[in-house]
Design a binder for these strands. Structure first.
Length: 421
RNA sequence: GGAGAGGUGGCUGAGCGGUUGAAAGCAGCAUCCUGCUAAGAUGCUAGCCGGGUAAAACUGGCUCGAGGGUUCGAAUCCCUCCCUCUCCGCCA
């Protein structure tokens, strides 16, 4: 959500933002409603002022004038009721539109329609040279029984999977490594709920627009697709002290996504699944663009370091406008090299929002006399099983066995054997 | 699932039809005092939307979980919903 004053004063900028993000929003209608809203509010407030004045007179009045005053107020009241009815319907429509207004992408974000238009920022790491034909993770894990997709489907349905032995242990090793890395940097580790009420979803921008992609329970709660939702919800409706900022959280949770509308894509393997796990970086900082940018770069750096320490070849892309969510100002993706597919695959996503989320979530801090909405950012540190793809494919041997990255050996000190372990 | 209690400012908590945007305490800020490691005195301190101003001052309205209702007037009465807590049941 944006500040209505900002919207009024920058209507063209926001229209352009919507166009760039390939989103539709009837801004003229919103502005029209806003004008009506202010006008009605003014009328109502004037009437109320009269009423309040009369009320204090009634309290002090003698019995006779009291009766006539009360009579006058009865008349005023019926006119007020009518105005209030009008205002209510205007506000309902106004609020609905307000939730649809996109945040403005940063100047540095390239324009484009989809992820195909994302712009490569850098490539890093060395792609492995195999003296054999590298296998895909599907074969590496599937053939050896480390991943079981047939039983996954039997038990869990489409896109279901089981991970066994080394694949399961590799997941734990990655989570633990990710956690250790960020704890060392002063991030607070947090295990957060995946079962979350609607409010934090509205606040983070996943509702109402993203309802299709969320699993909903019969109690009206939703399963979150990222730990960001609960972590931001943690601070909802709170006033933070400026000294407590930035809040740096490294959150872990299972993640659930319906992936509605992506039925044809990546139907096999561990790339696109309905249920996965994520270690997520979340930062809430003071409300300045510079702070946001600084932390955005820092979160990217953290994720890059993580991938580098695993010695995985990767590239960084700046997401184009059409690939940005409603609230995102800018987003970087990290894509890890997949020898099995001979292409990069997205593994990390790091974005900042300015006060788009905190405004919806009502997360503020007091800066001297002034209340401010904080700024928020988040980014992947590791998502499994997707990152397993890059690891097993880059660390495979000719015989189908898989080595363990050096940095993970303290958590998993044996090869990820192929075969029946 | 059954039974009860309750949702008020940064926190604790009073108020239970008009003088209450809200007592008191805590916390915070300011000034003063004290010569000793902490205490005392006084004052100030909610948010949101408008008007106003260079910025203030000033000023109108709203907000005591949410939404309706009763009333000239509701934190206070009535209804619906949401949420929290306690006990019992169930349970990893």
């Amino acid at each position: 959500m944006l500040d209505i004053k900002f919207i009024r004063e920058n209507a063209d900028l926001i229209k352009e933002a919507a166009r760039k993000k390939r989103l539709k929003v009837d801004l003229d209608q919103l502005l029209k409603l806003d004008e009506a809203r202010l006008k009605l509010m003014k009328q109502i407030e004037d009437a109320r002022a009269k009423q309040n004045l009369a009320n204090s007179e009634i309290t002090k009045a003698d019995p006779t004038s009291r009766v006539s005053l009360i009579l006058q107020m009865t008349e005023l009241k019926s006119g007020l009721a009518k105005l209030e009815g009008e205002l209510k319907s205007v506000i309902t429509e106004w609020k609905k539109l307000m939730l649809e207004v996109p945040n403005v992408p940063d100047m540095s974000v390239p324009e484009g329609d989809s992820d195909a238009d994302n712009v490569e920022l850098k490539q890093a790491g060395e792609k492995p040279n195999f003296d054999f034909t590298p296998k895909s993770h599907l074969d590496l894990l599937g053939d050896s029984g480390l991943a079981d997709f047939a039983r996954g489907a039997k038990v869990s349905g489409f896109r279901g999977y089981f991970l066994t032995g080394g694949a399961m242990r590799l997941s734990f090793a990655l989570w633990q490594f990710a956690l250790d890395e960020l704890i060392a940097q002063g991030f607070t580790p947090m295990l957060v709920p995946a079962l979350v009420r609607p409010e934090p979803f509205l606040g983070t921008g996943y509702l109402p627009q993203g309802a299709e992609d969320l699993y909903k329970t019969q109690d009206g709660d939703y399963l979150s697709g990222t730990a960001e939702v609960a972590t931001m919800g943690y601070f909802m409706d709170e006033i933070l002290t400026p000294e407590s900022l930035p809040k740096k959280i490294v959150a872990f949770s299972p993640c659930f996504r319906r992936e509605a509308g992506s039925h044809g894509k990546d139907t096999k393997g561990l790339i696109l699944v309905h249920e996965f796990f994520k270690v997520e970086q979340v930062v809430i900082c003071q409300a300045s663009h510079e702070e946001s940018v600084k932390w955005h770069e820092k979160l990217l750096k953290n994720a890059e370091n993580f991938v580098q320490k695993l010695n995985l070849p990767y590239r960084v892309v700046t997401n184009c406008t059409g690939d940005l969510g409603l609230g995102q100002v800018k987003k970087y993706d990290i894509e890890v090299w997949s020898p099995g597919e001979n292409r990069y695959r997205e593994t990390h996503s790091i974005s900042y929002f300015h006060d788009f989320q905190t405004r919806r979530l009502n997360i503020r801090y007091k800066n001297g006399e002034k209340m401010n909405f904080a700024h928020s950012l988040n980014g992947t540190l590791v998502a499994t099983p997707r990152l397993l793809v890059g690891i097993v494919e880059n660390y495979q041997n000719a015989d189908g066995s898989i080595r363990v990255p050096e940095v993970l050996k303290k958590y998993l000190n044996e090869d990820i054997a192929s075969g029946n372990n």
